[in-house]
Design a binder for these strands. Structure first.
Length: 575
DNA sequence: GCCGTTTTCGGCCCGACTGTTTTCAGTCG
């Protein structure tokens, strides 16, 4: 039975939670959390690494003990540490840590004094007023706990997709920027790092009069409740449930504060540790040597003061970027203007909403010089997928359109279904008449890993196969990725001379960032495609760029940064 | 529990806000 990284990471997180409740050494707890994070974002299955004879202690944050526990999870599904902890503390107690206002100390008190072991029991106790008399508790915390559980039951407080966050963030920034005395208002946090989902918005404002900004902020008409309000920091919930943290600093601290609040936490900790070794202290007000401020007005000045090259926000996850910045080996990341075309979109012929010419003109208006039309194939009947006859009719239509269009070239393509046995949904001779064939899995998501992998590898063996669309099949927060050996898929793409898509649709953002990095390492080009179903969807390319940057991709790693002439050659299969 | 261009032992990032307290612990980011 294969054990996946996420299961090992979850076990380490659970151990960390339970150790916290026990009041264990905070640094031991952090070691478990660091290890969980390392494993979660590894990209390659730990089990496979072990089978290849890799020494796990070479991974950052994994020492002899944790390497042993990883082996234990693979062998037995759990570890002795977790088993022992669960005998002392009910496992459900860890869930209580997720409730705002409750940390390990209070959860410990609740358990010791009231024998509460679950969210349900806690809610009952809060409703009956049994929490307020506990040491360190009071009426306010009791109400906070009760409302937090009620909000959780209404599914508030979940992470939201980056594109959804943008819909809240952009008008709020505009509102704050217009407040008198505000010099600058920007979104920091995971939003600025272009994470696919964000838990809250972190907004940084530079202004001389923090008090006035705070008043404006809590007066914003979408604010539902104020969680906290201070001189320099406030937190609110919007009516949608989204939490927004606002921090106000003076102009000369902008760089240090922006750096501090962009995170990630793991990146910040690692950098501050590095600074410490050089006798420096970093906080949101600047970089200090022996109490004397030496940098902080701009982010660039902060990096310079600690001897690092500038690290783009998307890379700040403590996944090797600090070492790369130290040795001047960071990639120059791809930007939106590097894109020369888009290789995946739909029209009215299937499930799109605009016609061929509208799509082509919209792509041109976005600065693109080529666009591939890739409708669904017949098997995907809900989208009115194309059969051979309709596809050939569209091919003729595109030929005619290309004769009259200037400034943009329309490619003839298809998003053909990869069938369960790895065959493609349209015959060879038809696919051979196209400029490119985008293959996609739209059915049988639940095949066993080996079978799913074989299916995709076989599809790639097809002589006309060009590009694997949305390679993991996940829909963010809605559908898990199917089980597949992505490392194997990437290697096979290299061997077969085909490519992987990074689908820029905000619900997909698939290829995942860690796999982008793997594709880059293997020399497999990635195509950043909109999967547009209307002319408005070309705007989504920016989210694909964000994801690509998180995956360390440069212009050279991306297929559709190539100008038209070069791209044509790359679309011709060489093997 | 991890880690080492001072170290194999003794460190481990840093500050704001709240609520419960009488000076600060707990939580959060």
């Amino acid at each position: 039975m294969p054990v996946h990284n996420v299961e090992i990471a979850d076990i380490f997180e659970e151990i960390a939670d339970l150790l916290e409740i026990e009041g264990d050494n905070p640094f031991r707890i952090r070691a478990y959390r660091n290890a969980a994070r390392t494993i979660r974002s590894l990209g390659r299955d730990v089990q496979a690494l072990i089978e290849q004879g890799e020494d796990l202690t070479r991974l950052s944050g994994i020492g002899k003990d944790l390497a042993g526990q990883i082996q234990e999870v693979i062998d037995t599904g759990t570890t002795h540490t977790l088993r022992a902890l669960k005998q002392e503390i009910p496992g459900g107690l860890a869930d209580l840590l997720k409730i705002p206002g409750l940390g390990p100390k209070r959860v410990g008190i609740i358990y010791d004094e009231l024998d509460i072991k679950s969210t349900d029991e806690l809610y009952q106790a809060a409703c009956k007023g049994r929490l307020r008399s506990l040491k360190g508790f009071g009426a306010k915390i009791e109400v906070k706990v009760r409302t937090a559980i009620e909000a959780h039951l209404q599914k508030k407080g979940r992470r939201i997709k980056l594109a959804t966050a943008a819909e809240y963030a952009e008008p709020l920034i505009e509102y704050l920027a217009q407040t008198p005395g505000v010099l600058q208002a920007v979104v920091a946090g995971s939003y600025r790092r272009c994470k696919e989902t964000v838990g809250d918005l972190d907004i940084l404002v530079t202004a001389q009069e923090p008090g006035a900004v705070m008043d404006e902020f809590i007066g914003y008409d979408e604010v539902a409740d104020v969680v906290s309000k201070g001189d320099t920091r406030s937190t609110v919930h919007l009516r949608s449930g989204l939490q927004v943290d606002l921090r106000v600093v003076a102009e000369d601290c902008h760089g240090a504060a922006l750096y501090y609040f962009t995170g990630s936490r793991a990146h910040n900790i690692a950098v501050r540790r590095l600074a410490q070794k050089h006798g420096l202290k970093i906080n949101e007000y600047g970089v200090f040597r022996k109490g004397k401020r030496i940098a902080g007005t701009t982010e660039e000045s902060v990096f310079k003061a600690i001897g690092l090259r500038f690290i783009a926000p998307e890379l700040r996850e403590n996944r090797g970027e600090i070492e790369a910045a130290r040795t001047d080996s960071l990639p120059t990341l791809v930007t939106l203007t590097d894109l020369k075309g888009d290789l995946h979109c739909h029209t009215k012929a299937t499930d799109g909403r605009c016609d061929l010419q509208e799509m082509a003109q919209a792509a041109a208006a976005h600065g693109l010089s080529y666009l591939a039309i890739t409708e669904h194939s017949k098997r995907l009947s809900v989208t009115h997928g194309l059969d051979q006859k309709r596809l050939l009719r569209q091919v003729d239509e595109i030929d005619r359109l290309n004769e009259k269009l200037t400034g943009i070239r329309v490619f003839k393509g298809i998003e053909v279904d990869i069938l369960e046995d790895g065959g493609l949904d349209l015959p060879n001779e038809v696919l051979g008449r196209l400029d490119l064939v985008v293959g996609a899995v739209h059915s049988k998501f639940d095949l066993p890993r080996a079978k799913q992998t074989r299916r995709i590898l076989k599809a790639m063996d097809h002589p006309h196969f060009t590009l694997l669309a949305h390679p993991s099949g996940r829909i963010i927060e809605a559908r898990e990725a199917y089980e597949v050996d992505m490392a194997g898929v990437i290697r096979h793409a290299r061997e077969r001379g085909c490519y992987l898509e990074l689908n820029a649709h905000p619900e997909r953002l698939d290829l995942l960032d860690t796999y982008c990095q793997m594709a880059k390492d293997e020399g497999v080009l990635v195509a950043i495609n909109s999967d547009a179903h209307s002319t408005l969807d070309f705007d989504n390319l920016r989210f694909g760029i964000g994801q690509a940057r998180r995956g360390w991709l440069s212009k050279a790693d991306v297929l559709n940064t190539r100008p038209l002439g070069q791209l044509r050659k790359l679309l011709k299969r060489t093997m």
